[in-house]
Design a protein around this nucleic acid. Sequence first.
DNA 1: AACAACATCAACCGCGGATAA
DNA 2: GTTATCCGCGGTTGATGTTGT
Length: 391
Amino acid sequence: MGRSPCCDKVGLKKGPWTPEEDQKLLAYIEEHGHGSWRALPAKAGLQRCGKSCRLRWTNYLRPDIKRGKFSLQEEQTIIQLHALLGNRWSAIATHLPKRTDNEIKNYWNTHLKKRLAKMGIDPVTHKPKNDALLATTGGDGQSKNAANLSHMAQWESARLEAEARLVRESKLRSHSFHHQQITSGFPPPPPSTSASAQIMHKSTAPWTAGIGGDLESPTSTLTFSENNAPPIMSSGNIGVNSMPMIEFVGTSGSSEAGIIKEEGEQQDWKGLGSSTNLQPEYKEGIENSLSFTSSIHDMTNISMEGPWTPESLRGNSNVHVNVGNSMEEGFTNLLLNDSVDQPDLSDGGKDSENSGGGGSDSGSDYYQDNKNYWNSILNLVNSSPSNSPMF
DNA sequence: AACAACATCAACCGCGGATAA
DNA sequence: GTTATCCGCGGTTGATGTTGT
């Protein structure tokens, strides 16, 4: 594709933005929205390319950006989601609503990655480096399973994302009236397609697949809610640590392994929502997210043997997976514990008991801690905005 | 005080997906 | 079906600040 670089025009300014430029961009977007980024600079009187303007807006000028130190909870979220999603920063950023993907990426590269490496954990696989070694030298099958689980999550992620898109499109077409009703709850959408604004806007699409929707994915086991809610991992409100844990029932070797206990959860979650100072939309998010756990059932009922294909992930019969093994072997229990030990993280110390391990002892707790680690990840998944890039 | 090494993060670059023509 | 264009994403760079010698 012969696309020319967007900044190849001579005379366009590059480098750091001046306060005057910021002011111009802000003023223009506040008044008109950004519309087409490419056309914006000329209209706003900026000697910049549209790309540069978009970046400046999404990473710096956007009003809903939280700056400054990352909380312990945010760190945990990043680490857990990175274990699941890899370097999909934009997807991770949807769970940290006031952080930009760029900021998260930077923080990962400058802080978290180094910390994990220092602890002997491979920041890519989130496994102790010894494990990684074992896997490459043809060690036991458990390390393989851990890798497979990661792949499985990615496949599942892709599949669900596609489903979500189909459903959204269908519903947008057939329920425009409904759509209006829902979107009316939000501020006028116009301008921004900036990262968060776009997410918010997209998320207003009706989600009724599986509830009489006219386009239900044949393979979908999801139940999307009417309103999507903003991510509930927002700092200060509710985070992974304050959510009820999904419990893996069963142990390794059992064909029942991987069943997730969720009975009675909804009540608990609602109770949680009402007992805290959650804003209404966050409460909604919690309730909506309750219908999301079925995907995890799918995920955990898939054979770990043989090559992973989208097809192999669709079926949920005749396949069994030893999730217990994967969890035990696949991810380290250390990383979150260690982060608590960092002196600069003391602000969130009270959360550490649920941070995916809780215990400070290694060795005998390793087994349990990895379960908790995955519980945390699964909680994140469950609390995901249903249209997030993650799914 | 001067310099080097390291850390941080805003901004750029180039690629790929989506979509309009 | 093909091409051109826009947008968003992830990787990387480089300016600036901080710390150590």
